[in-house]
Design a binder for these strands. Sequence first.
DNA 1: ATTAAATAGGACTAAAATGGTCCTCAATTA
DNA 2: TAATTGAGGACCATTTTAGTCCTATTTAAT
Lengths: 149, 149
Amino acid sequence: MLRLSKLTDYATVILSFMAKDKAQVLAAMEIASMTGIAQPTVSKILKLLVNANVLISTRGAKGGYALARMPEEISVATVISALEGPIALTECSISHQGCEQASGCDIRGNWSLINQTIHNALESVTLADLIRPVALPEEVFIPVANIYR
Amino acid sequence: MLRLSKLTDYATVILSFMAKDKAQVLAAMEIASMTGIAQPTVSKILKLLVNANVLISTRGAKGGYALARMPEEISVATVISALEGPIALTECSISHQGCEQASGCDIRGNWSLINQTIHNALESVTLADLIRPVALPEEVFIPVANIYR
DNA sequence: ATTAAATAGGACTAAAATGGTCCTCAATTA
DNA sequence: TAATTGAGGACCATTTTAGTCCTATTTAAT
């Protein structure tokens, strides 16, 4: 489905919450209770975001997590790769190693163009964009079956 | 990793092969031996592509599969959704049903913009583009660890 | 100093998705 | 009628993902 993992989805919810909250430092437990996501899961996600330099953590009592920079400076691409690793549609996009043996492999080189396009799209959207309220048009409910045609 | 499934990857290889081959109709077994992909797997993929109206099948002796239309008319988006279902990064992109209870859900509406962008990117690339030989720059080998930064 | 509150790091388990194979039925040609 | 080929779906093994938990480390407050 070319879909994001659940954890990535949670991460955007958590980050959006943090970006909107005026408090600078929030403990994992606070975030968990505010977002309704289980605390161990929240902690797991926060750790990954710290490793990716999206968040800064403070240990010890009164510790917690804070955004490492302004929401405008945090792209969706960064968040996705923090949770899921590099954004690459095919294995070949990471490295062409060992692809030469497949008879159709020369074709796949063109995937890099597609990858680049998608990466650019995700890079251009920031956390600030995500929290900006959009007037969504009236929701139209479409049964999933219909989407498959 | 936001990556395509292996089957989708195979599908592009198979379709590229078919687009380049002058024969109009190819049996699953022929395709399997030419591409090096196991025959049962090839069959599975071909069936999915028929259901998505990307291929046309002919049963019986001398039967096989042929492209339903010109390579220029077959988008990568079509191929991906044939194999993996609708292209939607988040569940909410398919339907917002039941999202209202989450405190951060109003944020996710903006995902639809991202989805649209990516969908457009994939829609704009066709099978014809995939088989067009590209002069790929000298491959630079980057250890995966470095990509994670 | 000691205690309590937090994060860091990683092991572990259960559930879900994926990849891959196989079997039976239907259609077509020779 | 026999041989060839696709249709459809069941099935299983493997991998991935989600989620939890445990132990160590760090810091603040008393």
